[in-house]
Design a protein around this nucleic acid. Structure first.
Length: 258
DNA sequence: ATGGTGGGCCCCCCA
């Protein structure tokens, strides 16, 4: 089976591209981020017509996440339990598969703007809350995948300019430590299980020909629990949709499990 | 340090 993640930067604008991508890449489930619409405007009919179920957690103007899946999702959780948050950033659900239940946690991690800012402080708090909750989720759900736009470039090789951007947002020691803390819970970065092209990125700034110059960051990730890890046979970033007219600034990431 | 581009929305906020 295949699971994907994609920050689509407005579902209203990108719905045709998402449907086209799913038609060409009939994954079993995909986590979407940055819907930028309220639940009342979520296009359930379009996904149903494409053969998918959807659960969503929307918000006006900003954020918003959804899980699109071939089989109905159940035990849906929205945001981090016990962590007060006005922003819709997390949706988790269980999918029934041939190999047993799979817990899919789809997150739009905080951007954080700039180290030292209020938004950066919010990012670090949010990351700590996610970590604490994930420990419980992993204990309850051995087969677990954490997917989404992490807004962290974990290592220097995940950035087009690790020296020039050292210490800036997505590149700080604090953010990278939080990423390592997630791995320490027993999660594995599926992308790095395999040999990958050099300069593999999942996000490119719209400005100054970022994509054409491959000035990007790898900030969209799929982390798998130990129970899933042994069955992972591939993990790829699909750059093709970034070449579309009116693209999202992010590319989808896809993992193949057993 | 600024501003480059894009989305949402009501002209400035967020990425």
């Amino acid at each position: 089976m295949q699971i994907a993640t994609w920050n689509i930067n407005s579902l209203s604008v990108r719905l045709p591209q998402v449907l086209a991508w799913l038609a060409a890449n009939p994954v079993d489930a995909i986590g979407l981020q940055e819907l930028k619409l309220v639940d009342e405007k979520f296009p359930h009919d379009a996904f149903q017509a494409a053969g998918y179920h959807a659960v969503c957690f929307g918000q006006k103007t900003y954020n918003g996440v959804a899980i699109i899946s071939r089989t109905p999702a159940h035990d849906v959780v929205r945001n981090i339990p016990g962590h007060e948050d006005e922003q819709a950033r997390v949706i988790a659900a269980t999918l029934d598969t041939a190999e047993g239940p799979l817990r899919l946690i789809n997150c739009y991690f905080v951007n954080g703007q700039e180290p030292g800012s209020d938004k950066f402080a919010y990012k670090l708090k949010w990351l700590a809350a996610l970590h604490d909750w994930l420990r419980q989720e992993l204990a309850a759900h051995p087969r677990l995948a954490l997917v989404g736009d992490f807004n962290v470039a974990p290592e220097d090789r995940d950035s087009y300019d690790p020296v020039g951007l050292k210490g800036t947002i997505h590149h700080t020691a604090e953010e990278r430590q939080h990423f390592q803390d997630l791995l320490a819970l027993g999660l594995t970065d599926a992308f790095r299980l395999f040999e990958q092209p050099e300069k593999s990125y999942s996000w490119w700034d719209y400005r100054q020909l970022g994509f054409q110059k491959n000035r990007g960051l790898r900030i969209d990730h799929i982390l798998v629990s130990q129970a899933l890890c042994a069955g992972v046979t591939a993990c790829l970033i699909d750059r093709a949709p970034r070449k579309n007219p009116q693209p999202s600034d992010h590319a989808p990431v896809v993992v193949t499990l057993g």
